[in-house]
C-alpha cells in the first residue's frame, strides 16, 4: 500500500464523492483525510487514487460501507476518566435536578462515548430522568451500536482500565457479554436513547440541550467547518448549558469563544453565557 496521497489526488477523490453521493468532504482536515482515504483504499484493495475515483464514478463503491470505514472510531470507553468523574460529580447532578433535561451526543462514531455516558447515568440512577439524543451519520454504525457496539476485546481491556480509574460502582464486566472474542455492551443501557442522522455541520438547531458532548470530532475539520459547527452547537445550547470538547481541543480559534466561558480548562468544559 502506498503511504502517501498527494493533495491533487485527495481533491479528486473529494470531488468524485461529492459528484456521485452529494457528500462534501472538502472542509475536512486534509492531513487526516488523506490518511483516511489511504486506509479505506487499503481495506478495499484499491491501489491508486485514480482507480478509486473511477470506481466511485461507476458507482462500484458501497457508499455506506465507505463512510463507515472513513470514520475515525478509535475513541475509548471512558476516555479521559477524570472528565467522566467530573461529569458524574458536578455536571449531571445539576442538569438532572430539572426533569426532562436533554443531553446530546453529537458525532457518535463507535458508540464508546455514548455507552460511557449511559453507564454513568445508570450508576447514578438517572437513566430515565434525562433524554439522551445520539447523532451518527452512518446507519451501519447506529445498527452496530444498537447491537451492543461489538468491540474487540483489546478495546474492552482499555475501557476496563479507564473505568477503574473513573472509580465506577461495579465490576466493568457486568456491562458486557463476550461472544467470539467480541464484547457486546448491555443494550438495556441505551434503550431510551434517541438516535438520528443529524449532521451538525448542516442542520438547524432546537436550542434545547443542557449538555452537548462533541469530543474529538472537530479535530477532523478545517477552520471554516470548525467555525460553522461551533456556531451550530451554540444554537443548540440553552443558557448556562455545558459544551464538552476533547481535552486537546479549544474554542479559542472561534468567534463563539466570546459567548462561552471556561468551566474547566483541563477537561475542556465550557458553559454558554447568558
Amino acid at each position: 500500500m502506498s503511504t502517501t496521497l498527494g493533495i491533487v489526488d485527495t481533491k479528486k477523490i473529494i470531488a468524485a464523492i461529492n459528484d456521485m453521493y452529494g457528500v462534501d468532504y472538502s472542509n475536512y482536515t486534509l492531513t487526516t483525510l488523506r490518511r483516511r482515504f489511504l486506509y479505506v483504499m487499503g481495506c478495499l484493495n484499491i491501489l491508486s487514487a485514480d482507480i478509486l475515483v473511477e470506481q466511485i464514478h461507476r458507482n462500484n463503491i458501497d457508499f455506506d460501507d465507505f463512510v463507515d470505514k472513513l470514520m475515525i472510531d478509535t475513541t475509548e470507553l471512558f476516555r479521559d476518566p477524570s472528565l467522566w468523574r467530573e461529569v458524574r460529580e458536578k455536571l449531571l447532578p445539576e442538569i438532572c435536578s430539572s426533569p426532562g433535561s436533554k443531553i446530546w451526543m453529537s458525532g457518535v462514531s463507535s458508540g464508546e462515548e455514548l455507552y460511557s455516558l449511559m453507564v454513568v447515568l445508570h450508576e447514578m440512577g438517572l437513566q430515565k430522568d434525562v433524554r439522551v439524543v445520539a447523532s451518527c451519520p452512518s446507519n451501519i454504525r447506529i445498527d452496530r451500536i444498537k447491537k451492543g457496539g461489538i468491540f474487540p476485546m483489546k478495546r474492552m481491556e482499555l475501557g476496563e482500565a479507564n473505568y477503574t480509574r473513573f472509580s465506577g460502582k461495579f465490576e466493568f464486566t457486568k456491562y458486557y457479554t463476550v461472544s467470539d472474542n467480541f464484547a457486546y455492551m448491555d443494550t438495556s443501557l441505551i434503550e431510551n436513547v434517541e438516535f438520528n442522522n443529524f449532521n451538525i455541520s448542516q442542520d438547524k438547531s432546537d436550542k434545547s440541550y443542557r449538555m452537548i458532548f462533541c469530543r474529538n470530532l472537530m479535530i477532523q475539520y478545517n477552520m471554516p467547518l470548525y467555525e460553522r459547527v461551533l456556531q451550530n452547537l451554540m444554537d443548540n445550547l440553552t443558557v448556562g448549558a455545558y459544551l464538552i470538547l476533547g481535552n486537546k481541543e479549544t474554542i479559542n480559534h472561534s468567534e463563539v469563544s466570546k459567548r462561552l466561558y471556561t468551566f474547566d480548562s483541563i477537561e475542556k468544559i465550557y458553559r454558554k453565557r447568558s
Partner: peptide, 22 residues
C-alpha cells in the same frame, strides 16, 4: 505531542491532532 493523540502538521503551519488508531 500530547498524550493519546497523534500530532500532525497541517498545511499552513498548524497542528492537527488525531485520535486515529495507534
Amino acid at each position: 505531542a500530547p498524550a493519546n493523540y497523534h500530532m500532525y502538521v497541517e498545511l499552513g503551519n498548524k497542528f492537527a491532532l488525531s485520535t486515529e488508531d495507534v
